[in-house]
Every structure is written in C-alpha cells, then in structure tokens.
C-alpha cells in the first residue's frame, strides 16, 4: 500500500484511501486545493502531503532502479525499514507497558505472553480484542478481533465492562495522538464492540489445529481482522501427549501458520501461555510451558510476573525491543498503569 509509506497520521491516511487516493502517483497528480477539499484538510496540510508524496515517490524510483534484478517478492532492508515505520501497533491501555513495547503489540508479528494463573493473561487478551477496534480517528486500527478460547475463561460480562470503559476513555486516546477530532465524533456502542470480536471456543487440540488452518480462509472473508488471540495456546497440548516429538511438530507447524497469517494480512497474533516449573541446575525454576523448541517459535516473548504486590511485564525476547520491564495493574476498567507511587521502568 503506497499511501502507507507516507509519514502522516493514520486518520489522514484513512481519508486519502477513502477519497480514492491509493497510489502516490494519484496524489502527486492532484493539486493542493483539490486534495484539501477531497480529504477535508487545510491547504497547508494538503501541501505537506504532496511534498511527502513526491519525496517518497522519488525515493521509490531510486530503489526501483537499483533493484531491478531482485527476485520476485524480494525486498531490500531499506524498504522494509520504511515499511516498519508504519507498522501499526495496538495499545495495551497501560502507558508504561506501551512504552517498553514501543507503542503496543506490533502487527505482522507473533507475540507470546505468559504468566502464572491469575496474573491477568486473559484480561490482557480481552483488552487487546477491544482496543484493536479503537477507530482510526482516535489513533487506533479500527479493526476486528478473533478470539480463540481454549480454556473457557472468556466472560462476556467482563468484555462488556472493558468495552464500556474503553469507549469512555476514547477521547483521551485521541489526545495522545494529537489528533484534531472535534468534528469527527465517532459513536461506538459496546454492543458493536462485542459484534466485532469473532469468538471461537475449542475443546481439543485437533479442533485448535483445524481452526488455525481454517483462519486463512476466514480472514480472507473478513479482511478487517487485525488481531488473533489464542487463550491459551497451551491448554490442550498439555494432555494426552505421550509422543513429545509429535507435539513439538504440531506446535511448530501451528506457529508457522500463525506467523504466515500475521505477515499476509498484516495483523497481530497474541498467544497466551502458561508457566511450568523446570528443573535447572538443582533447583526448580519457573519457565513458560511447551518446552525449549517452542520458545523459538514466537517473535516476541513477554513474561508476566508478580513483584511484591505489583504485576510486572518483562520483555524476555524481541528482535527490536530492549529488555525492560514495566508495572501494570488489572482494574475494573481493564488493564491500566500501576497506580503505585514507584512508577519506574527498570532496566535489566
């Protein structure tokens, strides 16, 4: 998507697309005043967009010339870097957590979240399923969510609670994104938030694998899905497996499929995992379940743990983020900043 390359706000990008400006060429052909009326911005802003468009297309041409011999589908790291800048992120509603994650859960990547029972895995899952729907005008993605529940912990009454709080807090989000949104009042209803979560309850590992295989087709029909949450990826894989090699193969295959989905449809995949004890050098230590080979399967790994009476999230593995930890809390309104006075971000 060429318009995605422009360094402009998500809402303007959305307006451009809505007005039919899909390619850079179509933008540069338009005059500033025309553009301004088409997408309802001031002429200054339109000029700025034109400037970016010509810059970006010049950049593009230079890349295009030097890389004519590229294999089909190949990309240079430079274009990928440019694309990554526009990788959208889904906020967790906890500012501290967003900060260490570079803005939230990244699209196009698989993120694994794990922790002991009661730490808030399901709560984060539900929060993300709601937050992905924050409209473009408010700096969100305006997408839909797929929620795959393997444990039965998804409670509609809780989703409703979080959705209502999210709608109430929406003006605050727009504030964060410095958007001018007085004129675009977006009315959202908690019911529509529920409608935009595709909920699947699976009761065995075969169902789970079948569903992951089917997702490609499902998302093809529902292109606006922007996040897949599996809560938890682990549960059905911890029973009835005598053949551990088979389990590893099945899990890896599933992870690969999910990763492909994330790339293909530019969506975020969040896998929730349980913890188990592992015997390391004479003592039992906590680690995420599913074994060592699984730990390679996810791009990012975030571990949730208790630090005193505070919940913390720690980035254990990520190709682009530095390891850091942040406190968060689970409130009636959902995931929020930890309210304790010691709001420090500890470097590890």
């Amino acid at each position: 998507m060429e318009v995605g390359m422009l360094p402009i706000s998500a809402s303007k990008r959305g307006k451009l697309l809505a007005a039919g400006y899909t390619s850079l060429r179509s933008i540069s052909r338009a005059s500033a005043s025309q553009l301004a009326t088409d997408i309802e911005v001031s002429e200054d802003e339109a000029c700025e967009i034109l400037k970016y468009a010509s810059q970006t297309s010049a950049l593009d041409r230079s890349i295009g010339n030097s890389n004519t011999s590229n294999l089909y589908g190949g990309q240079t790291a430079w274009t990928m870097l440019n694309e990554e800048k526009f990788n959208t992120r889904i906020t967790t509603s906890c500012v501290d957590l967003d900060n260490i994650l570079g803005g939230g859960i990244t699209c196009k990547e698989v993120t694994e979240l794990g922790g002991v029972p009661g730490i808030g895995k399901t709560q984060i899952g539900i929060q993300l399923a709601v937050n992905v729907q924050i409209p473009l005008e408010y700096g969100g993605l305006g997408g839909k969510a797929i929620y795959i529940d393997t444990e039965g912990s998804f409670m509609v009454e809780r989703v409703l609670q979080i959705a209502e709080a999210c709608i109430e807090d929406m003006p605050e989000y727009s504030h964060h994104f410095h958007n001018n949104v007085q004129d675009c009042e977006v009315k959202m209803h908690p019911n529509s938030i529920l409608e935009n979560i595709f909920y699947f309850r699976v009761c065995s590992y075969t169902e789970q694998i079948a569903l992951v295989n089917y997702l490609d087709k499902f998302i093809e029909e529902h292109k606006d899905v922007k996040i897949i949450i599996i809560d938890s990826v682990t549960f059905h894989f911890r029973q009835d497996f005598d053949d551990m090699a088979l389990r590893t193969r099945l899990l890896n295959e599933m992870a690969l499929k999910l990763m492909k989905l994330a790339r293909k449809f530019c969506l975020a995949v969040v896998l929730l995992n349980q913890v188990t004890t592992k015997y390391i050098e004479g003592s039992y230590q906590l680690t995420l379940a599913l074994g060592d080979s699984w730990s390679h399967s996810c791009t990012n790994r975030i571990i949730l743990f208790w630090n005193g009476d505070e919940r913390h999230a720690y980035i254990d593995k990520s190709p682009s983020l530095k390891s850091a930890s942040a406190a968060y809390s689970v409130t009636t309104r959902g995931i929020r900043n930890s309210n304790s006075s010691c709001k420090r971000i500890k470097m590890v």
Binding site: V156, L194, F200
Partner: peptide
C-alpha cells in the same frame, strides 16, 4: 467452524 455471536450472549 463459525464464530459464536457474542451479542446473543449479552441478553
């Protein structure tokens, strides 16, 4: 496989 309708569950 079809997703469940959550709206149905509010009522």
């Amino acid at each position: 496989m079809q997703p469940e309708n959550l709206l149905h569950q509010i009522h």
